[in-house]
Design a protein around this nucleic acid. Structure first.
Lengths: 332, 332
DNA sequence: TTGTAAGCGTTATCAA
DNA sequence: TTGATAACGCTTACAA
């Protein structure tokens, strides 16, 4: 591997001159500059990032921790992050927590060893203690939460405006004549669950429909949990005629369950709306009424944008940014 | 950020002693060792990887280049790679080419700057010139191709045994009485396309069914290309009664097209088999006959395994490894 | 316009 | 059992 030192030797120059020439540093003779660049190209000189990072005490790298890349929501978000960072000459270190808190802690440590300049994170289902994250922050690494954010902790974060998303979805259901509208919620510890729930409830109240707690069930978002929730809803004395689901996958599981136990609904079709508007819906034979489309790519972009701003203004006491990108009700 | 030097000062030791103590280097007093470790913990000492990489002239990092993480096949493969490398104290630098050759070249350069110890790559649709990759190899970085491999270039690679997968799929169709079986192939420049095709053709020949080239169409794997291919098959004088598809997505597009143009099939249902066995199939109302399940996770694992072996035996003239993992016909 | 020298954090070699 | 020293590749303030 060819180094600046070697280039310098071959050209009878000093390493610093070569370095400057390669970076178009002002005050280097045009002839020298060209000579250096030519030789660098000829010998396939490739700068050693490890050395640069080491010298600069900066890695120009953002850490990204997310639950799983199998969820298209997150792979889209990664694309948004990557594109933004690429354009700004940063790179990303992507890691999956697989919803495992221990692993999340390990990853935080990896991020720290690698001296990432900042961190973008969507915490696991089970993260309640954020000390591993606040420790990192305290050591001077700015952190932006995305999609999933802590309940109490004040922080920078980028999410979807799921409150409004849920509100609009339920309004659509009401407009279509539904009065008994169920909701299958996600883990109650999540802000995202509360917000969706409030949108659901407020839509009802705004249209003078009493809020009935028996129409709300919680799922842990596993298939089993989803099946359990729909089953419970069907078992209520007056089952819902329409259901809002925390995620499209929840809805799909519910539909699957219904197909098997359809007798219970008296042949009445239940109308569904979920969050996600996943690409795979294009291929479903029987599409749902609608889906609330979030903007994962833009969430990623915005999170990266925010984080780079924080990195570039180190001392600055920037107040905690809370960005909520709009959702879009996609009617099929 | 606390450094070894600081730990040394505080303990009135030399940096080298501290370094050795932290690494359980033999010949360090037990007392010293404990003292060092205790202080390191107390002050939250975190080693600086950039410095270590720089010093060791090794990054303990594998580069991974793949077309897109949106394809679950690849996110599963990444999981396999990650798990294997984690267990062996390596990390991964994951990048997406988005089927863009120029970007692929850029990424190679990024990998080189970052001095990855090895590269796992699935090239883009359009990569025909491999010089950017062979250049990297020549500079001493071992490379393992996965999923997509070059036609001519001898290389280490890990793929699926799609020949056998296609063969078994077509045999199933034949057993079910089909005699006119179509095949929608992927880009002809891919080895994976040729292999599938040969499996398709050999299955026919082994059952004494003449191979009819008009029943084979090529798609570029875009929705448009897929629709075009199925349309062409339907337009043939004797349309197929069953179709093998290069990928499940091809099959889904074909099914979608059929739904719209179903008149053309005279109400005869065409039976399909594709490659992939994607999780989303669980949610389809009308499931295909079968799908050929590949093992992306295991492919990733094996590729990482192979690459680490290559890294660990630098000089060794290891003959090119060609691993093909079995496919499994999943009948719905 | 170019060169000198120091230093980033860590570790390996050798000496004490 | 511990310490001194050099080196990894690069950048930059300062000197020439």
């Amino acid at each position: 591997m060819i180094t600046i030192k070697e280039l310098a030797q071959r050209l009878n120059l000093s390493p610093s001159t070569v370095s400057k020439a390669l970076h178009d540093y002002p005050g280097i003779g045009l002839v020298t500059k060209e000579k250096v660049k030519a030789l660098a190209k000829e010998l396939h000189y490739v700068p050693n990032q490890a050395a640069i990072h080491f010298k600069q005490q900066k890695t120009f790298t953002l850490g990204v921790i997310l639950p799983s890349l199998l969820d298209q929501f997150y792979s889209l978000a990664v694309n948004g992050i990557e594109n933004y960072t690429m354009d700004h000459d940063y790179s990303v270190l992507i890691c999956q927590s697989h919803e495992n808190v221990e692993r999340e802690k390990q990853l935080l440590s990896i991020m720290q060893r690698n001296r990432v300049d900042g961190l973008i994170i969507s915490v696991t289902k089970n993260t309640t203690d954020y000390s591993h994250i606040t420790d990192l922050q305290r050591s001077g690494v700015p952190v932006v939460f995305f999609v999933r954010k802590p309940t109490q902790l004040p922080c920078h974060n980028v999410t979807s405006d799921v409150y409004k998303g849920a509100l609009e979805a339920v309004e659509l259901l009401i407009k279509r004549g539904h009065r008994r509208i169920g909701y299958i919620n996600g883990p109650v510890s999540w802000v995202a669950s509360t917000e969706r729930f409030l949108g659901y409830r407020d839509a009802l109240l705004q249209h003078e429909i009493a809020y009935d707690p028996t129409l709300v069930k919680v799922s842990d978002l596993t298939s089993g949990g989803n099946h359990g929730a729909i089953k419970a809803l069907l078992a209520s004395p007056q089952p819902p005629t329409a259901i809002l689901a925390f995620k499209d996958y929840v809805m799909l599981d519910a539909l699957q369950y219904l197909k098997k136990a359809r007798a219970a609904t008296d042949g009445q079709a239940i109308e569904f709306i979920g969050f996600g508007a996943l690409p795979l819906f294009e291929y479903l034979d029987k599409q749902p009424l609608a889906s609330i489309q979030e903007q994962p790519y833009q969430i990623g972009e915005k999170a990266a944008n925010l984080l780079l701003d924080l990195i570039r203004n180190p001392g600055a006491e920037i107040p905690f940014q809370q960005v909520a990108l709009p959702c879009n009700l996609k009617v099929y």
